[in-house]
């Protein structure tokens, strides 16, 4: 489904991705974990073509998006939905207009039908009837759910989540996790989730990948990850200060 082959990316002298290889399976939820500022968001943006790698290939269903023109890239992007860290709702638009935005851009549906779909998606994330509110009137959790509704508005096959539970209370975290799992199952999605919330990753991930120093150092099912004897993995899971990961 999604394949990253030998991807390099550096900003100035700092190597963020250093020969990264990763294959993401279709119809599953893959969680990518790693240190804060360790290049997880950069990795995610490579998958959707927001950032082009210095070298290497990003294959989405066999097409190498690093070589596509803007126009062809947009065709590929129509398969994607993405939930941003702070939801990235357009604050000049109402919630309804936000969710309707991809529909208006990519389809020729009538107003009536668009309203129908918007109501439907908002119901799917448990937020019926907030169409007329402005994003600034919503709480963090609600914004994320609206962001999810917008991400799945066009029935994408792949949804990317950039730290969906960061900054939420435990109850809301659980609600969002539940929502991701339900959505994944109901729409049969391929999900890529970035997180460093240990509890969540084991709950939602079918597969887990550990990003460390620009490469994937561990990849497997939650059980395999839990049983891993890689010292970096162990330190990350236990949250200890001592170990190969240096706190600077």
């Amino acid at each position: 489904m999604i394949k990253l082959v030998d991807v390099h990316k550096s900003y100035g002298k700092q190597k963020v991705l250093d020969g990264l290889n990763l294959a993401i399976e279709a119809g599953k939820t893959t969680v990518i974990i790693g240190r804060s500022g360790g290049g997880k968001s950069v990795l995610l943006k490579h998958i959707i073509g927001l950032i082009k790698p210095d070298s290497g290939h990003v294959l989405i269903e066999e097409s190498d998006i690093t070589r596509l023109s803007e126009k062809d890239l947009n065709e590929v992007r129509k398969k994607f939905g993405m939930l941003f860290q702070e939801a990235a709702l357009f604050d000049s638009m109402t919630v309804g207009e936000n969710v309707a935005f991809p529909l208006r851009e990519q389809t020729k549906l009538k107003d009536q039908e668009i309203r129908q779909i918007v109501a439907d998606r908002l119901r799917a994330v448990g937020l019926s009837g907030v169409e007329e509110k402005m994003p600034s009137e919503l709480s963090g959790g609600m914004r994320k759910r609206v962001g999810l509704a917008r991400a799945i508005a066009l029935h994408p096959r792949i949804v990317l989540f950039d730290e969906p539970t960061t900054g939420l209370d435990p109850v809301m975290t659980e609600a969002i996790n539940q929502l991701i799992m339900d959505t994944q199952k109901n729409f049969n999605l391929t999900c890529v989730v970035i997180s460093h919330d240990i509890q969540s990753i084991f709950r939602i991930g079918h597969k887990i990948a550990m990003l460390y120093e620009g490469r994937i150092i561990e990849y497997g099912t939650p059980e395999e990850i839990r049983a891993s004897d890689n010292p970096v993995m162990r330190q990350f899971l236990s949250g200890s200060v001592d170990g190969p990961i240096k706190v600077t």
């Binding site: 702070e86 357009f90 935005f101």
Partner: peptide
């Protein structure tokens, strides 16, 4: 200011993702 805020809150990235220039 408006576009800057949209940039730092990833709203501009969101537009790209939704294949809207």
């Amino acid at each position: 200011a408006e576009l800057g805020t949209m940039r730092v809150t990833e709203q501009i990235d969101a537009l790209y993702v939704m294949a809207a220039n």
